[in-house]
Design a protein around this nucleic acid. Sequence first.
DNA 1: GTGAAAGCGCTAACAG
DNA 2: CTGTTAGCGCTTTCAC
Lengths: 335, 335
Amino acid sequence: MFKPITIKDIAHALELSPSTVSRALSDSYEINEETKKRVIEYAEKHNYRRNPIASSLRHGRSYSIGVVVCEVANSFFSQAIDGIESVAYGKGYHVIISQSHDAYEREVVNIQHLANRAVDGLLISMSAETKDFSHILKLHEQGLPIVFFDRVIDDFETHTVTSDNRKGAKQATLSLIDRGFKKIAHLANAPHLSITAERLEGYEEALRQCDIPLDESLIRYCHHGGRVQEEVDEAARYFINLREKPDAIFVASDRLSMGCLSAYNKLMPRESHPAVAGFSNSDVLDLLQPGFTCIRQPAFKMGQVAMEMLIQLIESRYPVYDFENIVLETELIQR
Amino acid sequence: MFKPITIKDIAHALELSPSTVSRALSDSYEINEETKKRVIEYAEKHNYRRNPIASSLRHGRSYSIGVVVCEVANSFFSQAIDGIESVAYGKGYHVIISQSHDAYEREVVNIQHLANRAVDGLLISMSAETKDFSHILKLHEQGLPIVFFDRVIDDFETHTVTSDNRKGAKQATLSLIDRGFKKIAHLANAPHLSITAERLEGYEEALRQCDIPLDESLIRYCHHGGRVQEEVDEAARYFINLREKPDAIFVASDRLSMGCLSAYNKLMPRESHPAVAGFSNSDVLDLLQPGFTCIRQPAFKMGQVAMEMLIQLIESRYPVYDFENIVLETELIQR
DNA sequence: GTGAAAGCGCTAACAG
DNA sequence: CTGTTAGCGCTTTCAC
């Protein structure tokens, strides 16, 4: 059906050898300017395009990289993807996005799918449900370059990029305390995610600094990262039914901020909602929800840095043993 | 660096020929059960994975398809992508997503990138800025299977899936009229998009049916589909400054609904906002914005149908000349 | 400055 | 039931 023109066709038409055509198209210094011009003109005229699959096979490289995120319909991740793409395209790489939907099984399947030469490297942000990392470890041991961003794995010898979650969480919590709230709850992400622990630390640190005792009953985890709205609704109902209701909530993620606000909207009039501050990269959420203070992560930058690190790993001639763990600053947006 | 085991390696280790190994791995009926078992065991033990690039080159097929949407951080499109993936994975296809950001140039670059054998077919939803279709037409003439969804092109001989935009728009407008509003504005998408014309028709039809005269000055187009928030803000300011302000607005898309609500939030207190009804597939937008009536498109279904049609084109032995234009029903969600 | 030939990993005739 | 061979399109020595 779809039969594009090949180097052979050009060679035949111009009475040259395929190798000459190949060299002419890659602008080799060995080739006569005159010949180059003929080849390039013919190629353009006939809409020739190098077959990337053959090229990949030859080079043992696909010039594409895989990205694994929980979902793309998420401001943070879509901005990170934009950052990744901005670097990737500039360096001649394709970007293949795949979504785990925060489910362990999807993550395993997708990573398997991407691995083994279909991609030259992987950019991963862990799924909320994943506790077992052997599927990733195995690939890494085989030599597949991997860089983690945002949601990383401990004790994994590779580059990582994250934001300063502890500090951001602390700022957000402090901003609630500053506004006079005393009973501040924490709606947390899945317990085994790296970001969950760090953000929890920041929350605790803020309370400690202001001599507010930590009340464990004010912390609720969402094991599916809010993918299941029911778990967020349940958390909101739990907070509402406490004898001493929280007057404010620090929410650990974009997805959960959305879920939390909508859960409360279903449960009570807006005037009686607790104050909410949380991590969010959404442009509109904060506009639609007056008084919502948010922590912005440098998502675009994080994508860029992650991609740069991955390219460094891919293009390095020798195995890399010296890994960087870059931490970017967050920004507090207060209204 | 990353040197996965090949069929040759297995053949060598087991003292078989590569072809036997290949056949054993694809469970060919010709191969002895005993041999199959040995091969499969060895392959699993050594974590063999078929090199998809070599396989693609051999078959002249990549078993991957390209999706071009304006952006993934959009409820409608991310749901459509989920639908596409659900069918694709089941049939053994990879999905490569690329974003045009509603910009003509990005669309051209991305489509070129995807085409020429890197993908077996294309699923396209047009960018808001695109007026010239020659880049797509050229590929189609060369035989690349293409299916359009949601934002289609007129006079293009191929399968399409859309939703009943005219009817949905009419329902939304009627719902505003029912609630007693008389001066109903229309915030429209880019003028040359297929969906823009259809939704405008529905709006006009609703007015006509209720004997409300059409007032052209109440219609504003967003040439970049709301990608530039400034153009939405400008439209909101325009409506506010009209001598006779609209008391309700029918908004043509998800992105514009967001933009419109946040523009008004910036400009005036919530109590004085006009009523808003519009196309939106967002789960939370309607929850966060009381009184927001929305038209839901069957995005997931649309993705599924589009993918099925594309596979039909790809796998057809003979050129297809009999094209379908499927129209799916929308749903009105009223509060 | 150009060509011939080999090979990336896989598969499908064709032979036995 | 298994092996031999050729070739997908491209690139890159090695010759000339």
